[in-house]
C-alpha cells in the first residue's frame, strides 16, 4: 500500500515512518508549516528542516503552509493530503500519534472523508519501551523545545540517550509529564534514523529560554555521509 507519512520532524513521526517503511510502500512525507507557534495540530520548532530529513531518506516531500488557526489547520492539512494523493498516489496516511485523541480523531476524519487509510502505529504504545527502542535502534534525536517544568535550559539541543531517558522517567514520575512529550512538554528533532541515507549535521543553532519554555532553533544544517 502506498502511504504518505505526516511528518513534523520529531521522533514520533520519523519512527512511525520507519515502521511503515518496513511493511508498506512509503511514497512521501507530508508536512504542514504552521505560522502560529501555538498551533493546535502541528509541531513547529525546526519544521522547515523536514525538507532535509526527506532528502536524507530519499523521499519526496509534500509541503503546505497553515496560519495555524484552530479550525483552518484542518483544511490546510486536508489540502496537503489531497496533493499527496494526486501527486504520489497514496492510499493511506501514517501519523505518529501516541495518546492524543484530539490529533488522532481529526486526522482520522480527514482520511475518512477522502477514502484514505489511516495508521497510527505508536497508538497507546508502551512509552518507556518505545523510547528505549528509539535509542537502541539508532535514532539520533535532539530536544528542540521545552514547554513545561522541570525542563531547564540544558535540555535545549540535548540528545535523547539512555541518561536523558532516565531523567525523563524521573520527571514523568515526579512531575507527571508525558514520558514521550505528547502532552506538549517537549518537542524533538531527528538528526539521523536507520533509514536515512545521510545524517543531518547541525552547523548553527540558537536557543531562547525563559520560565521553563525554550526553543532550540536550528539556523543552519546540512547533510553529511554516514
Amino acid at each position: 500500500m502506498r502511504l504518505g507519512v505526516l511528518c513534523s520532524g520529531g521522533k514520533d513521526s520519523i519512527y512511525s515512518c520507519g515502521m511503515a517503511m518496513e511493511r508498506e510502500d512509503v511514497a512521501c512525507l507530508i508536512t504542514v508549516h504552521a505560522e502560529n507557534e501555538e498551533s493546535y495540530l502541528f509541531h513547529t520548532p525546526n519544521i522547515g528542516l523536514v525538507r532535509l530529513q526527506a532528502e536524507a531518506a530519499a523521499l519526496p516531500l509534500v509541503e503546505t503552509v497553515s496560519a495555524g488557526n484552530k479550525e483552518e489547520e484542518l483544511a490546510d492539512l486536508g489540502r496537503a493530503l489531497d496533493i499527496a494523493r494526486d501527486r504520489h498516489g497514496i492510499a493511506g496516511v501514517v501519523t505518529g500519534a501516541i495518546l492524543s485523541v484530539y490529533q488522532a480523531s481529526r486526522i482520522q476524519r480527514l482520511c475518512r472523508d477522502r477514502s484514505l487509510w489511516c495508521f497510527n502505529p505508536l497508538w497507546h504504545t508502551g512509552q518507556e519501551a518505545y523510547l528505549r527502542a528509539l535509542i537502541g535502534n539508532g535514532y539520533d534525536v535532539l530536544v528542540s523545545g521545552v514547554f513545561s517544568a522541570p525542563f531547564d535550559e540544558s535540555w535545549l539541543g540535548r540528545r535523547i540517550d539512555a541518561r536523558a531517558l532516565e531523567l525523563l522517567i524521573h520527571y514523568a514520575e515526579k512531575y507527571r509529564i508525558t514520558l514521550t512529550g505528547e502532552g506538549g512538554e517537549y518537542e524533538t528533532f531527528v538528526r539521523d534514523a536507520p533509514f536515512f541515507r545521510k545524517r543531518i549535521e547541525v552547523v548553527r543553532a540558537e536557543t531562547a529560554y525563559r520560565n521553563y519554555r525554550g526553543i532550540y532553533r536550528i539556523t543552519d544544517a546540512r547533510l553529511v555521509d554516514k
Binding site: A20, V94, F119, L122, W123, H124, T125
Partner: peptide
C-alpha cells in the same frame, strides 16, 4: 498478518 494495524488495534489490548 503483521500489518501496521496490529500495533494500533491489537497491541493496546494486549497491553
Amino acid at each position: 498478518e503483521g500489518s501496521l494495524a496490529r500495533e494500533e488495534f491489537v497491541l493496546p489490548i494486549a497491553a
